[in-house]
């Protein structure tokens, strides 16, 4: 008994098998509702996972190719030291650009923490020199040694200590999303198994009659498996549709938007949720089939 043989609607044998089971009771809507609710949640878990993946990539990309040289020097030597550092950087292989940040840019960086009225001129702030690397990258250790020798107040910060925890956090968030999808699938299987077992138990007399007249387990199971698979497919399709509409209605990403406004699908990833209904149907097929054969051995 294959999955296709169950969901192709015009197979005569399957229709006949379907007829021998009485019209559904409460297990029908329970199965459809469960599959629908789980598919709805799975859409959001999938969106979370994809968004976390994009976030991890974005953070990595943004931080990976940039570095900062922090230069501390007496005020009267600051410009001299800055020029010396820029000269070192301009001759360092693997560095594409290097420029000293202006006072206005440094004030803008500090403004979120100290407010707009910070008297930056009165503070002994280090000069920040922003550099971007070429595709081949630079020798960080070699650059550190040159800076230590020629500009002792300059410290190279390649953002590793920022990048690593962010990438780890985003990676775990993505894993959490995938784990949620796995849990949703398992919970769906468990609930459909319970519903299928209840349906078989409620139809014990039907099962006994069928066994008495020579029906094989596969024939009896097919009637239940087909019904539950189709219900799960229908429910999951509805749940997925509602979930996708929900995701589509979320605010779109903008410059002020953080992680949550980026929670959605982009481009071809809108096709990913469409995998959920057939996946739920496969879960229902396997769960119901296992439950049906187990219950049949108990009943007869």
């Amino acid at each position: 008994m294959s999955l296709m043989s169950l969901i192709v609607p015009d197979r005569r044998a399957d229709r006949q098998a379907d007829r021998v089971v009485p019209p559904s009771g409460h297990t029908a809507w329970l199965t459809s509702f469960t599959a629908g609710a789980m598919a709805f949640l799975a859409v959001f878990a999938l969106a979370l996972s994809l968004a976390a993946g994009r976030l991890a990539d974005r953070w990595s990309d943004a931080l990976e190719r940039t570095a900062t040289v922090r230069l501390s020097a007496p005020e009267d030597q600051m410009q001299l030291q800055t020029d010396a550092v820029l000269a070192i950087l301009s001759t360092t292989p693997g560095i594409a650009t290097a420029r000293a940040m202006t006072d206005a840019e440094q004030r803008a960086l500090l403004e979120p923490w100290f407010g707009p009225d910070l008297p930056i001129d009165a503070l002994p702030l280090p000069r920040l020199i922003e550099l971007t690397e070429t595709g081949s990258g630079y020798d960080g250790e070699g650059l550190r040694q040159r800076l230590a020798a020629e500009a002792p107040g300059a410290v190279l910060d390649d953002h590793t200590r920022w990048r690593r925890p962010l990438a780890v956090a985003a990676g775990r968030l993505r894993l959490l999303g995938l784990l949620s999808i796995g849990l949703i699938g398992t919970a769906t299987a468990a609930m459909i198994t319970l519903a299928a077992s209840a349906a078989l138990a409620a139809n014990a007399q039907v099962v006994r009659v069928l066994r008495q007249v020579g029906a094989r387990d596969a024939y009896i199971a097919r009637a239940f498996v087909r019904r539950f698979t189709l219900r799960a497919l229908t429910g999951a399709a509805a749940g997925t549709l509602v979930g996708m509409i929900g995701v589509a209605l979320l605010p779109s990403t903008d410059t002020a938007g953080g992680f949550l406004t980026g929670l959605g699908f982009q481009g071809l990833s809108w096709l990913y949720p469409l995998v959920l209904p057939p996946l739920m149907a496969v879960v229902a097929f396997i769960a119901t089939r296992a439950a049906a054969f187990r219950k049949l051995r108990e009943l007869t």
Partner: peptide, 14 residues
């Protein structure tokens, strides 16, 4: 087997 019994019952009307 269970399948064999099912097939056997097709030869026995009850």
């Amino acid at each position: 087997s269970r399948d064999d019994i099912a097939l056997t019952r097709r030869r026995i009307g009850m």
